[in-house]
Amino acid sequence: MQGPTEITFKDVTKTPELEDLINGKIAKLEKICPQMISCRVMVECPQKHPDTGNPHRVRIDVTVPPSQEIVAKQSASEGDMHTPLETVINNTFKAAEKQLKKLSEKEKGQVKIHPEQQVMGIVTKIFADEDYGFIRTVDTGDDVYFHKNSVLHDDYDRLNVGTGVRFVVHMGEKGPQASSVEIEYQPKPGNIA
């Protein structure tokens, strides 16, 4: 890996066994995608006394060239409240592996994005604190989900409701989602529809 590995524990006891498990899983990701730039893993327990769902949350952010980022996460609301933390970590890394394999296959196939494959749209909702939003396509009027990591040139913070973007639509696990989101125009203040 070209850059650093960051493992953060928040309200979870950091043990050598957990660190070894996570480092082993990161090494497996590196075998799938040797050109990884960085990998950040966050393990936390946001709910001290949950009524439902697993108390643990695991998030994995992997950056690969040319500044593409994949995110795999399991929220505290998902799964059984008695699922061991190690299982939550394993499941989250499996999701990251699946995304990296798909990305690697795409790169090997030399799939190029042509302007005619891109869609124009307007940002209709943005949830800055949660790093995602929705874009309404100009041609069909459908709302398409996008994540901060799918915005090119680190321009996520420049997006506002009404910003015009060009993007590519892919089918995600929960429906259509945008990738390669690029700002085409910014509305002038006071001209937001």
Rank of each mutant, 00 (worst) to 15 (best):
D139A: 12
G121L: 02
D142S: 11
E105R: 02
D129V: 15
V119T: 13
T137D: 02
V123Q: 01
K112S: 14
K102N: 09
Y145Q: 09
D142V: 06
D129L: 15
M120W: 02
F134A: 06
M120N: 09
G141H: 07
I135E: 01
S104L: 10
I89C: 03
T92W: 00
I126H: 09
T140A: 11
F93H: 05
T140D: 09
A95K: 14
V138N: 06
T92I: 03
L100W: 00
V119I: 11
I135C: 03
H114C: 14
I126N: 09
K125E: 14
V144H: 04
V111C: 10
T92G: 02
T92F: 00
D131M: 11
R136Q: 13
Q117N: 14
G109Y: 04
V88A: 02
N90Y: 03
G121D: 03
N91W: 06
A95Y: 07
I122D: 04
K94L: 10
P115A: 08
K112D: 14
F127V: 13
K102G: 10
D129E: 15
F134G: 06
N91L: 10
Q117L: 14
V88H: 01
T124P: 05
E97I: 00
V111Q: 15
T137N: 02
K94S: 12
P115E: 12
K101Q: 10
Y132D: 12
K98S: 11
T92N: 02
I89Q: 02
D139V: 09
G141V: 09
R136T: 11
T92Y: 00
D142W: 04
Q110W: 07
K98F: 08
I113W: 14
G121F: 02
F127N: 15
E105T: 00
T124D: 09
D139G: 04
I122Y: 05
N90W: 02
R136H: 06
E105Y: 00
D142F: 07
G109P: 03
Q99P: 05
S104M: 13
G141K: 08
E116A: 15
E107W: 06
N90R: 07
V138P: 01
R136I: 04
V138C: 04
S104H: 05
F93S: 04
D143W: 08
H114N: 15
K106S: 11
F134D: 06
E107H: 06
I135M: 04
E97V: 01
Q110D: 12
E97C: 04
H114R: 14
V138T: 13
L103M: 09
V144C: 05
D142E: 15
P115F: 08
M120L: 11
E107C: 02
E97S: 10
F134T: 06
A128V: 14
T137E: 05
F134E: 07
Q118F: 06
K125T: 13
Q99Y: 06
V88D: 00
V123W: 00
A128E: 15
D143K: 12
K94Y: 08
D131K: 13
V123N: 01
D131F: 12
V144P: 02
